[in-house]
Design a protein around this nucleic acid. Structure first.
Lengths: 346, 346
DNA sequence: GTGAAAGCGCTAACAG
DNA sequence: CTGTTAGCGCTTTCAC
């Protein structure tokens, strides 16, 4: 029986036990080229008896691919990324591979190194690195490994990306607010260098076109930061507050409750990202739902397709890098959810 | 330069380029047995020129270990586990290894398979599987691979565990409530089979000793479930509600806000787990902080130690399984945080 | 101090 | 349909 002894059970042990060759064992393992049923059964029996499991490492070496995909995120504790990773993993697993996760702890200076390390293990990489310097991105791309970048664009870099249409989301928020009659809104900005924040700002600028005047206040991305900035935000003289994300919005809401400021009667408030709790605040939050799981699935699908396509797979020459059509972007639609935290200005 | 061509750069390429042997290259790679500085420099230069990165797979095969640790969690989107995995990964990475994450999606029927698969890739495994059948656990343990189980006990199974002292946490909550003068509390129970829930119930039973009468109401672990059970909970006739976790508590709070029930004036409420948002609800939640990151770190440390110790490492005989001292438990302390959601009964 | 050669466990031509 | 034989890229005795 499969008692946990010292040495690993190898394919050779199985072959011996089943009185077959390792090739045959390998064949039944990968159910390939019809092996005689009797023999196959004997092999399966031996596998079961010995509790044999093929070593993924050996398979990887022999096959030339590890069966592993990497994903690098800035913060796994952020629901945005844990949902993404979760969906990514599920899809990847369905395709028969596994996922190696790395967390850069929001530190752009280690991202490059982590990514390179990940590539030693993985067949491909999903990169969520909103603040990685362009040069590092270029260097990674030049490694030639299948690389997919999430929520970030890198013009002229010929890399594949997937992302969420933040622009449209912010526009939807602004449209909603404008329609309610708001004219002056204040935006509580997210992290400085982040692509998501830049994208929001870009959209906000566009929103001025339909009669909205927006003031930008530095803030951040956490509940704490939202809480801390509440009074300043109030003083900024808008009738509506557009928070960088739901965490910030909930922080504001919390502070407002303490201050006796009523939302939306005294001031309207919107979030972004739709975390689970957004429906359960008082009042429930008007926010933009972004397809986190959808993004994870899309990323997995795209990366797997890249793998299959074989980037630079041709031994010599073939489709090389400077193909302008080589880069490919995908932007998933978002959805505005109007709830109790917004109303017409008083 | 390191242009991303078709073929992978191997140690042989580096050796050729540096006019050295692969052995030497391997040596400078693993900085072992003083290689002559001149030669070493030449090798390093070649490595840089070629953009060489050792294949983790090949290293794994040759070394007999993959440099990868696995972790299986029920739900990566749950902050409890994402924090745990994050801290686990960080610690594991500091020790030079990587982490393979798998998410069982709360489905106990796939856990066994996922764990076995993980073990094909990883040198060791951290198992968070609160509902895995004992037999499966035993089977995994019998595989002989370094295995660490989080937040769950398995008497007689001689496996290593780390966990949080839920028992003490619940007792602290009850003590707090009792001291405020509560006599009748209702517990909103978590998922049926889960160890965490069983542990809470066990502690609750103990709490009756100091004068608390507790009614148990089935509920669940999500905000939605808390929201849904609110009215029933109210009708159960307690002066305080002990929620399975913070999500449930926030769901209750949300529903209470809709119903005009005031917390803590009309009823006291406690959570468990201290999610980030617990401080920001209205009122802020009295809850029990569990050291999620600490648990992740402790798990990593323990697992790494197991790896070093070499479970069943002795080729024949040696320290075998039925050693009673072989199993080892670690229970991290928790901390009650009293906030605005609890007060003396009216 | 350095290199040649034998594997690590598996897959994949290539014969029979 | 089945087995023999090379490797996959690296580490590691073991000689030099």
């Amino acid at each position: 029986m499969a008692k946990g002894r010292g040495k690993r059970v190898t394919i050779g042990d199985v072959a011996r036990e089943a009185d077959a060759s390792v090739t045959t064992v390998s064949r039944v393992l990968n159910d390939v080229s019809t092996v005689d049923e009797t023999l196959a059964d004997r092999v399966r029996q031996a596998i079961a008896d010995l509790g044999y499991r093929p070593s993924a490492t050996a398979q990887g070496l022999a096959r030339g691919r590890s069966g592993t995909l990497g994903v690098l995120v800035p913060d796994l504790a952020n629901p945005h990324f844990s949902d993404l990773v979760k969906a990514f993993s599920a899809t990847v697993r369905d395709s028969g591979a596994r996922v190696l996760v790395m967390d850069s702890d929001e530190d752009p200076t280690v991202e490059r190194e982590l990514a390179e390390d990940l590539l030693r293990y993985a067949d491909g990489l999903l990169l969520c690195a909103p603040r990685m310097p362009r040069a590092d991105l270029a260097a990674l791309a030049a490694r030639g490994a299948p690389l997919l970048v999430a929520n970030r664009r890198a013009p002229g870099l010929a890399l594949h990306t997937v992302g969420v249409d933040f622009h449209q989301g912010v526009l939807a928020v602004c449209g909603h607010l404008a329609q309610l009659g708001h004219r002056r809104v204040v935006y509580l900005a997210g992290p400085e260098g982040s692509w998501a924040n830049r994208e929001r700002l870009r959209a906000l600028a566009g929103a001025e076109a339909f009669g909205l005047h927006v003031t930008v206040l530095p803030c951040g991305s956490t509940t704490d930061e939202g809480h801390a900035v509440a009074e300043t935000a109030l003083a900024a003289g808008g009738t509506a507050l557009v928070a960088y994300n739901d965490f910030v919005a909930l922080g504001l809401l919390s502070r407002f409750a303490e201050l006796g400021v009523r939302v939306p009667d005294d001031i309207s408030l919107t979030g972004f990202d739709e975390i689970d709790l957004a429906r359960f605040s008082s009042p429930p939050l008007t926010t933009v739902a972004v397809p986190r799981s959808g993004l994870g699935r899309a990323a997995a699908t795209a990366l797997i397709r890249l793998l299959r396509g074989g980037t630079g797979g041709a031994p010599d020459g073939g489709t090389d890098a400077d193909d302008p059509e080589n880069a490919e972007a995908e932007a998933l639609p978002v959805e505005l959810h109007v709830r109790g935290s917004t109303s017409a200005p008083s």
